[in-house]
């Protein structure tokens, strides 16, 4: 027969779980599943050095609600696919080879998968993290179109983005996040704002700014749209 104390513990536990509100459950989920690798609060950049970037395990998520498209988050969290071919800090996953450095694929960690219910819950909680709405409001970007050919030249030949980013699964650099799915993944104004001033979003980012004017940012953002829809 079950001891009275065990029964009491089970009942208390069940009541405790039932008492959690959906938002509390979501916060608990983020803490348990995400916080060990992703920052959910802003780093104190004033008192940290760039070594902080080398030690990060994964992208910060404290501005996820200003960055991602929620529908993409829900899908991706259930079936994650690698966005950064060389991991979040490429130098930690690079080894020398006979013809140059190569990515040590075995060292790349896999992202966890969530159930559909947990993915919905996590996405909803992440979309509430919006400390940089002012940056998006300040962006003067209207979604537009550009010919794929012109956009591709602008992305590669004129601005050299393909040095670090892939705009097709089989073309481009490996160190940055792939950008052929960027339009599905990211909010349009985040794309424009981040290209304009990546350091404002992340003082230790590995993305350079390159002094691009508004017209150049418009063309690059539109190219990610046209190219993404083409993929």
């Amino acid at each position: 027969m079950m001891k009275q104390s065990n029964l009491l513990a089970i009942v208390t536990c069940a009541l405790g779980l039932a008492a959690l509100s959906p938002s509390a459950m979501a916060e608990q989920l983020l803490e348990q599943q995400c916080a060990s690798c992703h920052a959910l609060q802003a780093e104190d950049y004033a008192s940290s050095t760039v070594q902080e970037r080398a030690e990060r395990k994964a992208p910060p998520l404290y501005y996820a609600g200003n960055k991602f498209r929620p529908e993409w988050l829900v899908q991706w969290l259930q079936k994650p696919e690698r966005i950064r071919p060389a991991g979040y800090f490429p130098a930690a996953h690079t080894v020398p080879g006979p013809d140059g450095d190569v990515v040590d694929s075995d060292s790349l960690p896999e992202h966890i998968s969530l159930s559909a219910a947990d993915a919905e819950l996590a996405s909803a909680a992440l979309m509430k993290l919006t400390p940089y709405t002012d940056k998006l409001d300040a962006v003067d970007y209207e979604v537009g179109n550009i010919s794929w050919r012109m956009g591709n030249l602008n992305f590669g030949k004129f601005n050299g983005c393909d040095a670090c980013h892939r705009d097709a699964p089989d073309y481009g650099g490996l160190s940055g996040p792939e950008l052929y799915s960027a339009w599905d993944r990211l909010q349009p104004k985040f794309i424009a704002s981040f290209i304009t001033d990546p350091v404002a979003w992340d003082p230790h980012t590995l993305m350079p700014a390159n002094d691009l004017n508004q017209a150049a940012v418009q063309k690059l953002s539109d190219y990610l749209k046209v190219n993404g829809e083409d993929e």
Binding site: A91, T94, G100
Partner: peptide, 26 residues
Amino acid sequence: KQLYQIYCTQCHGINGDGKGINIPDM
């Protein structure tokens, strides 16, 4: 050296020999 590892090795190589992971399509 620390800055080089963080910002430069992707293209210039972990040994600085110009053979970083990004070079195949450059």
